[in-house]
Deep mutational scan, measured.
Amino acid sequence: NQASVVANQLIPISTHLTLVMMRSEVVTPVGIPAEDIPRLVSMQVNRAVPLGTTLMPDMVKGYA
């Protein structure tokens, strides 16, 4: 099972991601792979992401 990136807190819209905001967890459905966490740092979310939500490629500007 592959770990995905999950929000560690509420991430407001247009926030630049930091390591503190993300954790890796095995979830269904599978989202952005956990090994991409370093790549996600300083990218922006294009919507509010609630605590515990799996980050999907379409939620992060410039990821997909």
Score class of each variant (00 low, 15 high):
48 A>Q: 14
1 N>Y: 10
37 I>D: 01
33 P>K: 10
45 V>I: 08
37 I>L: 14
37 I>R: 07
5 V>T: 06
44 Q>T: 14
22 M>S: 01
60 V>E: 02
47 R>G: 05
13 I>A: 15
43 M>G: 02
61 K>D: 15
50 P>F: 07
44 Q>F: 05
34 A>C: 07
41 V>D: 03
42 S>F: 09
48 A>Y: 13
45 V>E: 02
39 R>K: 13
56 M>Q: 14
32 I>H: 02
30 V>R: 14
23 R>I: 08
25 E>T: 06
56 M>F: 10
9 Q>F: 11
24 S>N: 06
23 R>M: 05
21 M>Q: 04
48 A>M: 14
20 V>C: 08
54 T>Y: 03
16 H>G: 09
28 T>K: 13
22 M>Y: 02
43 M>F: 09
54 T>P: 07
58 D>N: 12
64 A>K: 05
61 K>E: 15
44 Q>R: 10
44 Q>H: 05
54 T>E: 01
5 V>N: 02
1 N>S: 12
50 P>W: 04
57 P>W: 11
1 N>C: 08
58 D>I: 09
53 T>H: 13
14 S>W: 15
29 P>D: 06
42 S>T: 13
62 G>Y: 08
39 R>W: 09
17 L>S: 00
43 M>L: 15
13 I>C: 08
55 L>C: 03
25 E>R: 08
19 L>S: 09
25 E>F: 07
64 A>W: 09
16 H>V: 12
1 N>K: 10
56 M>K: 10
41 V>P: 00
26 V>C: 08
59 M>C: 05
12 P>M: 06
23 R>Y: 05
7 A>M: 04
48 A>F: 10
19 L>R: 14
43 M>R: 09
19 L>P: 13
49 V>S: 01
2 Q>R: 14
1 N>R: 08
46 N>G: 07
22 M>G: 00
31 G>S: 01
64 A>F: 09
7 A>Y: 01
28 T>P: 00
49 V>T: 04
35 E>M: 12
60 V>T: 02
5 V>S: 03
14 S>T: 10
5 V>D: 02
19 L>V: 07
11 I>S: 01
42 S>I: 03
43 M>A: 08
53 T>R: 13
42 S>Y: 12
21 M>T: 02
5 V>F: 03
32 I>F: 02
18 T>W: 03
9 Q>H: 08
21 M>L: 04
13 I>P: 11
18 T>G: 04
56 M>V: 07
